[in-house]
């Protein structure tokens, strides 16, 4: 057999969608015992300038020696140059991430996914309903809306936590309560400390304190399954059309680019056609919620 001599060059990184770009951890904020916000900045300045995401998109985060996992972007594209990832320690990857310190280097590729349909939401009211860690993906949309306030009609934020101590981005949330261009409604399930002066009750109870205009409103919902169940109930009871309810869904992902098959639900890939789905999509795709 004759052997062909290989003359072609190896794959060029620019053409390789699996190629992570190295980024430095510039800040780590402890939110809760098991939840931290990692602020990243690409080492390559041209990446710092060229990386642009939409609210609701995610990145594939690589930790050298450990692996890669999808993490939603918590910062808004209106605040460029850095990426904030709000992460709960839940598995091997996130445990490894929690062992890293400021100035350590990780790999990032993306942004991936569809993100929230901000062009459709434009001109409408925006209702954000987050429970617990559900704030992580919704925060990018929150700040996108607040930084482009003129593009939206009313903005309502509903955020429920187990206790005041469990509230993510607490100072930021409390500061929003003082703004008159957003109706910031915070609630806690219980207040063991007794120091909380705000509302006490589950997230869905906030619907008792607000008048909504469903035909001119998009609702973005994210949280644990129980949040979906009861918030969706409230939204439907209020008269929301199922395609005006937007949800951010979590699935196992290995590639983030529609190849590896893991995030497939029904006929869609969460990484390509999601992670933001309308409630209509969700009920029409088997195994979606």
């Amino acid at each position: 057999m004759l052997l062909h001599t290989d003359t072609a060059p190896p794959l060029q990184p620019a053409a390789n969608p699996y190629q992570p770009y190295m980024a430095r951890i510039v800040r780590i904020q402890k939110m809760l015992d098991d939840t931290r916000v990692f602020t990243l900045r690409f080492l390559d300045e041209s990446m710092v300038r060229s990386f642009r995401h939409r609210p609701g998109q995610f990145v594939m985060l690589s930790i050298p020696g450990t692996g890669e996992a999808p993490i939603s972007i918590s910062s808004s594209p209106t605040r460029p140059e850095i990426l904030e990832l709000c992460v709960r320690r839940a598995g091997r990857m996130t445990s490894s991430l929690f062992r890293l310190s400021t100035n350590d280097v990780v790999g990032v590729r993306g942004p991936y996914g569809n993100g929230f349909p901000v062009d459709d939401i434009r001109g409408n009211h925006l209702l954000l309903a987050a429970g617990g860690l559900g704030m992580a993906p919704l925060r990018s949309l929150l700040w996108y809306a607040l930084d482009n306030r003129h593009l939206f009609d009313g903005v309502i934020l509903m955020y429920g936590s187990r206790s005041p101590a469990d509230m993510l981005f607490r100072d930021e949330m409390l500061s929003l309560a003082g703004r008159d261009d957003v109706n910031c409604m915070l609630t806690v399930d219980a207040d063991p400390s007794g120091a909380w002066t705000g509302r006490i009750g589950h997230l869905p109870s906030l619907f008792d304190h607000v008048t909504l205009e469903p035909a001119r409103t998009y609702a973005a919902v994210c949280g644990p399954p129980v949040v979906y169940r009861y918030v969706l109930e409230r939204l439907l009871a209020a008269g929301f059309s199922k395609d005006r309810i937007l949800m951010s869904l979590e699935r196992r992902m290995k590639c983030g680019i529609g190849k590896c098959g893991h995030c497939s639900v029904g006929y869609k890939y969460t990484c390509l056609q999601g992670p933001i789905f309308t409630y209509w999509d969700a009920i029409n795709l088997p195994e979606m919620i």
Binding site: G67, E68, K254, C255, K259, C260, G261, H262
Partner: peptide, 8 residues
């Protein structure tokens, strides 16, 4: 069948 896993 093309599903794949990725591991370090």
């Amino acid at each position: 069948c093309y599903c794949f896993d990725m591991n370090d």
